[in-house]
């Protein structure tokens, strides 16, 4: 068999084995269905759920929160990263806050944001943004700082103005590293939105998961988790694609 087919076949086989093993274990070991339902029960719940309007409304809320938070984090992270890389005194002044904020588990701030911004979308967007901010910011700061001095010399010789420097040199050199940060950030934004929904409000997939838990609807709870995983995967893949297309120049290729 070729490497190509193996690379598709093997993961499929391992997943199938895992599911069969799971199903078999639940039946033979007499695990309570409240603790661990068999995969087929989860599948049934999932199929029923995706046919309801309700699920999609909740999913849309979560995606809106995560994506808005993510975009805010990207905007703020890149601008602050650039400003601090360009004007070191700003970084020095901000340093204590940066270190402090980095040390606090940001998720611990979630209840505070609910208190300040209410139970609606806004507080979840803020939580998502707070979590997603750091990977973008620290990668942007690092990337803008490490633009090659020799490359800057070329732009000095060419008498480029600051705007030209920014979009012809700084942004393209920093972009691959920044985009790596955004891959991490989008996952964190999802976590932020879900945790926010756990804590307060009555919308979103996080809320739905808690609601199913309270009703002891365990297969449905698992189904929500599966959907959350899918949404997360979708966002991550989108960003990953974006990164690949932007940093195509890093692999030597004549078609890119």
């Amino acid at each position: 068999m070729s490497e190509r087919t193996l690379k598709i076949a093997l993961p499929a086989i391992s997943v199938c084995l895992f599911l069969v093993g799971w199903s078999f274990y639940v039946r033979t070991a007499e695990v309570s269905a409240f603790v661990l339902p068999p995969p087929e029960a989860i599948l049934v719940a999932l199929i029923e759920m995706v046919q309801t309007r309700e699920l999609w409304d909740h999913a849309l809320v979560t995606v809106t929160e995560a994506v808005s938070g993510f975009l805010i984090a990207v905007g703020l992270g890149i601008s602050l990263g650039f400003i601090m890389a360009r004007i070191p005194p700003v970084e020095w002044a901000a340093k204590p806050f940066i270190v402090l904020l980095q040390l606090i588990p940001k998720i611990a701030l979630a209840p505070l944001f609910i208190l300040w911004f209410g139970f609606g979308l806004e507080s979840k967007i803020v939580i998502a943004a707070a979590l997603a901010f750091f990977p973008v910011f620290s990668n942007a700061l690092q990337a803008f700082k490490s633009v090659e001095p020799g490359d800057k010399d070329v732009f000095t010789i060419l008498q480029a103005n600051p705007v030209q420097r920014f979009y012809l040199l700084d942004v393209p050199s920093a972009l691959p590293v920044i985009l790596t940060g955004t891959e991490v950030a989008v996952v964190l934004a999802m976590i932020g939105a879900i945790v926010g929904e756990f804590i307060g409000g009555n919308e979103g997939l996080g809320y739905l998961a808690v609601a199913h838990l309270q009703n002891l609807a365990v297969p449905e709870l698992f189904a929500v988790i599966v959907i959350l995983a899918m949404v997360g995967l979708l966002l991550y893949t989108l960003i990953g694609r974006l990164r690949q297309s932007f940093s195509a120049w890093h692999v030597s290729s004549e078609t890119a």
Binding site: G150, D151, D153, V154, F155, L158, Q159, A160, Q164, L168, L169, P172, S173, W249, H250
Partner: peptide, 22 residues
């Protein structure tokens, strides 16, 4: 310069055209 100092995000002709662009 001693090193070529071309920019990997531009093609060869875009690199050569960069001074004119600026």
């Amino acid at each position: 310069f001693q090193e070529a100092r071309l920019f990997p995000w531009f093609t060869v002709v875009e690199n050569v055209a960069l001074p004119l662009r600026i």
